[in-house]
Write a protein that binds this DNA or RNA. Structure first.
Length: 866
RNA sequence: GCGGGCGUGGUGGAAUUGGUAGACACGCUGGAUUUAGGUUCCAGUGGCGCAAGCCGUGGGGGUUCAAAUCCCUCCGCCCGCACCA
């Protein structure tokens, strides 16, 4: 045999990509008779180059897009860029390049990389969130939200880096210090813009139940994030007047049933009561300041001891005025949840118990666990939070927890304290309003103007867009917009007096909260075109990383609701189907000095890993998700130029279920590449023989078996792709290819088989097309087909071909397989039983005795119980 | 701490949802061809056993004619949230 010819992926892939582009195959029109299907992968941040995670993500989406197109859908599959954000400003500071240039040149490069993957994308719809046109429309949305009362302005605490003069995200605070400057981070009160997402708490929560095609895990995470809890807001009367001028204190509790176990009240360090008291008590002031500093890092909170400061005030028990409780300022109370004040019941809350033990407060159990003796039950180091019966609680004694909650609420609701009910039932949410102000340049300007006379005034729509000025410098810390000489100066739209522009820009999560809607009419002169957006949304299949399970997806769900309120869309849920893919991982390597090494620097010599150049020993570390810092990265472009996009795509889909992390290995890529070569060679070898053959059923059992295998594979692959079980679809195709390769040596020249073989090969090509589109086009044309596979319909499965007239049943004796039997597909249970009992193997095992029982599951199994 | 998920050969993983465990792939072993090698092709490959056979889905127990799948319990790993009253 001569050296087999090889498939030259590079040239062939470029050729077909050119062909698709020339034919405009993936251009999508909104008006089309076919049913719509919108598949979307989370758009990338233009960091500079694509990484393997992108390859995995976009391959999956592309399989769905191409498959659905073949199934007769009008598919929308667009691509864009999440292009605002800090890395561009960091690059500007480090490399003296303007964020705009940096971003757009990254986009150009990455677009080229994505095109090399051969994605079925309508590139005419491409958008970048930093395009003036895009953020112009986003400013319109902001103003409409503002008019609709969905935007508010309030003060909020932020992490402030005093050296860089900037606000830091929580992730940028490391050990209480700014990640860049290393300076201790301060908590500052800044006035900021907020979207009133909390107005939608209940709705966002309730609607989760109507998202069946979302992973359970993500729905749960969102549910916990929204954090609904039902409780009671109740006012305690104070024995005197508090420093802030009130003589009562309002607390929130979810456990009103434990009211008789209360031994103290506590307020947050930021509570008005605490702040007022601190004014005249330096010691308390020091304590309050200490609590604030603690607030910065999550680690500190974890390890912090429960600490408090007694105010010297007392509160009356609502049901027993003679009993008074001490009031503390405590470090574990959060100002922004509930009322920022609690009553503490140490016996039934761990935090309250820790606090009570530290300050020697009474611990009185009021919930008795089932089957427990009230005389001996005592609380040790652990609070009891389980079920039980109320006791030690006056009129609540003997009630269940639920009933007691209800009784307490009812009584206090109807009991007036200074003319208003003492308590009110309340539902509380953990979800807080979404602060969108960022003190940065590279983002969407917030279209507001501050006028000394008129206050905050929205920019009139005719003055939009508020465009980012190009002439900015990054040689100093802080927001360049803030110190811009002319851009900030503007006349007040209401009174005409000199005023100042808002210099904050929007959180980049705003940009990504509606891009999926913009894709439906990307050049519209309004944020959306109602016809288009209502036609295409919701996204039928959204695919991306689980790291966006909460924020991005929740914000988008809010945004669509807000857009509905403001008339930009008519539905509420953006994503009907969601799939969260796993990450791409790789082994890590270190040299003797502990420095990380790139995979290409490491080779195996005699089974030992050594440095490719120096030959020094290399230690193989754990498999981790690819990251630049650990150097365990593989460049997609290098892979594509060596093996071709189809190989990379096929490997991405093989073996590992898409929701799990997959390990990238050289051996795996080579395996995938071998299959590309094998498939091409197989078709290349028979193409000439089959050229004059007409497709058909052929004749004889072999042709029939082949046709059956074909329909079965088609059926299975269809189901697997619909379920996004790409690894299973791949396995089916391997199996089918193996079958074809067994048939070919005789079949290609046998007139009884060749027609069926030719058809079977054509079906193979159609089936691999969503996954390896270039190889498929090449094979398609080798087999003498006209047109493009990309424009070919998915064949219809013939259900008759999925069943055999006979079936092979395993025969078990006492649950162990001992024989097999071939019976008619619709043989009766009685007939099967008789046939089984006549089997030599069965008789042998029964040893002449009659079976106790015979279980026949038609078309499945037979079990003889001896 | 709370919530969720997972555990199957040397490896990634299949298993029609209670019905032949290990499909498919990687790796490995042997052979053929060509060769300088890779490539390609054929055969084998869960463990023990010469064999009939026995054992086997993290450990233990249970339900069932039948369990990777359902129940109880223990162990291990992973993810999310975290002082939310």
């Amino acid at each position: 045999m001569s050296t087999p010819e090889r498939y030259h992926a590079r040239e062939i892939e470029a050729r077909w990509q050119g062909e698709w582009e020339r034919e405009g195959v993936f251009r999508t029109r909104t008006h089309d008779a076919r049913p719509k299907y919108y598949v979307l992968e989370m758009f990338p941040y233009p960091s500079g180059r694509i990484h393997m995670g992108h390859v995995r993500n976009y391959t999956m989406g592309d399989v769905v897009a191409r498959y659905k197109r073949a199934k007769g859908f009008n598919v929308l599959h667009p691509m864009g860029w999440d292009a605002f954000g800090m890395p561009a400003e960091n690059a500007a500071m480090q490399n003296k390049v303007h964020p705009r240039e940096w971003t757009y040149s990254n986009i150009a490069y990455m677009r080229g990389q994505l095109k090399q993957m051969g994605l079925a994308i309508d590139w005419e719809r491409e958008i970048a969130t930093c395009d003036v046109d895009y953020y112009h429309q986003q400013q319109r949305l902001f103003l409409d939200f503002y008019k609709a009362g969905l935007v508010s302005r309030k003060t909020a605490k932020v992490n402030w880096d005093p050296v860089d003069q900037t606000v830091l995200a929580n992730e940028q605070v490391i050990d209480g210090k700014g990640w860049r400057s290393g300076a201790p981070v301060e908590q500052r009160e800044l006035t900021q813009w907020f979207f009133r997402i909390s107005d939608f708490s209940e709705e966002l929560l309730a609607a989760l139940d109507h998202l069946p095609r979302w992973p359970e895990k993500v729905r749960l995470m969102q549910k916990n994030w929204i954090g609904r809890s039902e409780g009671l807001r109740l006012r305690f009367e104070l024995t005197g007047t508090a420093p802030h001028g009130s003589n009562e204190l309002e607390v929130f509790t979810t456990r009103p049933d434990t009211l008789f176990g209360a031994s103290f009240l506590a307020v947050a360090a930021d509570h008005p009561l605490a702040l007022a008291a601190a004014e005249r008590d330096p010691e308390l002031k020091a304590f309050v300041d200490e609590c604030r500093r603690l607030g910065t890092s999550a680690v500190a909170i974890e390890t912090a001891e429960k600490k408090g400061y007694e105010l010297g005030l007392r509160a009356r028990h609502p049901f027993h005025a003679e009993t008074t409780l001490p009031i503390y300022v405590a470090n574990f109370i959060l100002m922004d949840y509930g009322t920022g004040a609690i009553f503490g019941c140490p016996a039934h809350d761990q935090r309250d118990l820790d606090f009570a033990r530290a300050y020697r407060l009474p611990v009185k159990p009021v919930v008795l666990p089932p089957h427990t003796d009230p005389n001996t039950f005592a609380i040790g180091d652990e609070a009891y939070t389980g079920p039980g019966t109320i006791y030690n609680s006056s009129f609540l004694d003997g009630l269940s927890i639920e009933d007691a909650k209800d009784i307490v609420a009812s009584r206090l609701e109807h009991h007036a304290l200074r003319g208003t009910p003492q308590a009110e039932r309340q539902v509380n949410y953990r979800l807080r309003d979404w602060g969108i102000s960022r003190q940065r340049y590279w983002g969407c300007p917030i279209p507001m103007i501050h006028c000394e006379r008129c206050g905050t005034v929205p920019v009139p729509q005719r003055d939009l867009p508020v465009e980012l000025p190009a002439d900015v410098s990054f040689d100093r810390p802080g927001n360049p917009l803030d110190r811009h000489p002319t851009w900030t100066k503007v006349d007040c739209p209401e009174c005409g007096a000199p005023a100042r522009r808002e210099t904050d820009t929007m959180d980049t999560f705003v940009d990504s909260s509606w891009y999926f809607a913009r894709f439906t009419a990307p050049r519209a002169t309004a944020p959306t075109e109602l016809d288009a957006v209502d036609h295409w949304l919701p996204v039928d299949q959204y695919i991306g990383g689980v790291e966006h399970a909460i924020l991005h997806l929740l914000y988008s769900r809010f945004f669509v609701r807000a857009m509905k309120v403001t008339g930009h869309i008519r539905l509420e849920e953006p994503f009907a189907g969601l799939f969260t893919q796993g990450m791409v991982t790789h082994e890590t390597y270190k040299d003797a000095k502990g420095g990380w090494l790139f995979p290409e620097e490491v080779v195996l010599r005699d089974g030992v890993a050594v440095h490719a150049q120096t030959g020094d020993p290399v230690s193989i570390g754990p498999i981790e998700s690819m990251s630049k810092s650990k150097k365990n990265v593989v460049d997609p472009t290098a892979i594509i130029s060596e093996y071709g996009a189809d190989t990379a795509r096929w490997f991405m889909l093989s073996d590992t279920p898409p929701e799990r992390d997959m390990q990238w290995t050289e051996a795996g890529v080579e395996g995938a590449h071998r299959f590309v070569q094998r498939t091409w060679r197989m078709i290349q070898d028979v193409a000439a023989d089959l050229r004059t053959v007409k497709e058909g059923d052929g004749s004889g059992s072999e042709a029939e078996a082949l046709t059956k295998a074909m329909h079965r594979t088609l059926h299975a692959v269809e189901r697997d792709i619909e379920d996004l079980g790409f690894n299973r679809a791949v396995a089916r195709i391997y199996e089918y290819t193996n079958t074809l390769q067994r048939v070919i040596p005789q079949g290609a020249s046998d007139p009884a088989i060749a027609p069926a073989l030719k058809r079977a090969l054509r079906y193979l090509v159609v089936m691999i097309a969503p996954m390896m589109p270039h190889l498929a086009e090449e094979c398609w044309s080798l087999l003498g087909n006209r047109g493009l596979v990309a424009e070919t319909d998915w064949p219809t499965v013939n259900p008759a071909m999925l069943v055999d007239s006979t079936v092979t049943l395993p025969v078990q004796i006492n649950g162990k397989k001992r024989a097999e039997i071939v019976v008619d597909r619709d043989a009766s249970s009685d007939d099967i039983e008789a046939a089984v009992l006549a089997l030599e193997d069965v008789r042998k095992h029964l040893g002449g005795a009659a079976p106790k029982k015979v279980i026949v599951v038609p078309q499945r199994i037979v079990n003889v119980v001896a």
